[in-house]
Amino acid sequence: MRLRSRNILLAAAVAAPVMLFTLSRMTAQAPQTPGQRPTPAQRPSWTVGSQGPLPEHAKFTPLQAESGGALFIQNCAFCHGKDAGGGETGPDLTRSKLVTGDKNGEAIGAVIRNGRLDKGMPRFSLSDTEILNLVAFIHTQQDASMSQSGNRRGVDESDLHTGNAEAGKKYFEGPGGCTQCHSATGDLAGIASKFSGLRLEMQMLYPRDAKTKATVKTKSGQTFAGTVEYEDEFTLGIRDSSGIYHSWPMTAITAKLDKPVEAHVTAMSKYTDDDIHNVLAYIQTLK
């Protein structure tokens, strides 16, 4: 099933920075009586976070899971989603192999205490009881997710490997006009090592960290150039290459702004779904 990327991400770009993205995959299964739960043999047991045998772990009380849920909302939900099913920057813990292999918090607890600084996860100073409650909540959420009768939820990186990289390269270097601003050996070198899956596709279609550049000329004839730090209808503020911040009333300057995001928004109306999948396939090779 192909992702309707253009329509979904265009809505996300216009409406809000947070996007809800779901996908279902058709899998071959033996015929079932309507309403009948799949048998273990019919479940895709290789999939974590969907059906398949539930992981073996310590038994937790409902109170532990409830207390852990409150802690999770406070400390973890921003990245991992309120139900541990994945957020904008954090992975889906209900499909985590580390969670699946954890028995009584020995693996999850170590990550909570030590963090994963290389991946942007900080350390948390929580008591042993609080950590155990978090473990209880995470395991409870994984059990609930794996007990669902539908196909797996979420989007794996492999789901997005549907395009033709060679066709994507031709579009990138030709009619797409991407090389007017980007270079596979310049700003995009190693991009697929920094981002993957939906994060990479969203970065391609609507880069949230793209900076607006400005060239400013004052009434006295001075010229300044830099990255826009502040802009409204009355004031423009930029930071130059030396790190010095400058600001002026709009009435005191003329300014030329280069907004790279606008080019991406314009391109969204021109992309076909094949264009998106092909260009993404090409960008996935830039590691």
Rank of each mutant, 00 (worst) to 15 (best):
Q284I: 04
H277R: 11
P44Q: 08
A252R: 01
G168T: 06
L71K: 09
L198P: 04
P44F: 05
P175I: 07
L3H: 02
V48L: 15
D209F: 06
R43C: 11
P122I: 13
A11V: 11
R113H: 07
A189T: 04
S24C: 07
G168R: 05
P249K: 10
A110K: 14
V14R: 11
S247G: 07
A16I: 09
P207T: 02
Q203G: 06
Q142C: 00
G52H: 06
P53D: 14
T272N: 01
K270A: 12
A252V: 01
P17Y: 08
Q42W: 08
I283L: 13
M146D: 07
S193F: 10
K119C: 06
T251L: 06
K194A: 14
A184H: 01
T39N: 09
T254S: 15
A281G: 01
R2H: 11
H139N: 13
C76N: 05
K219D: 13
S183E: 06
H277Q: 14
A136Q: 08
F195G: 05
V265S: 03
T179F: 04
F124M: 13
E262C: 07
P38A: 12
D92T: 04
A84N: 00
M26Q: 12
G243W: 07
R43P: 07
E88Q: 15
G85N: 11
Q180S: 14
L160D: 03
T162D: 00
N133I: 02
L236S: 01
G52C: 07
A110Q: 13
K82H: 11
A84T: 00
S127K: 05
M1Y: 05
L71S: 13
E233H: 14
T94Q: 13
T162R: 01
L236T: 03
L286T: 02
N133S: 03
M19A: 15
V279R: 01
T254R: 12
H161Y: 09
N114F: 08
G197R: 00
G186H: 03
L134R: 07
D118M: 10
F172S: 01
E262D: 15
P55D: 02
F137G: 03
A84V: 00
S247Q: 15
L205Y: 07
N75M: 08
F195R: 12
Q64W: 09
K219I: 10
A165D: 07
T227R: 10
E88T: 14
T179W: 04
W248T: 04
Q141G: 02
E66R: 06
Q142F: 00
P53F: 09
D258H: 11
T185Q: 06
V18W: 11
F72L: 04
P17W: 06
K169W: 04
G177E: 00
P34H: 10
P249Y: 05
R43A: 14
D275S: 10
V14A: 13
S247K: 12
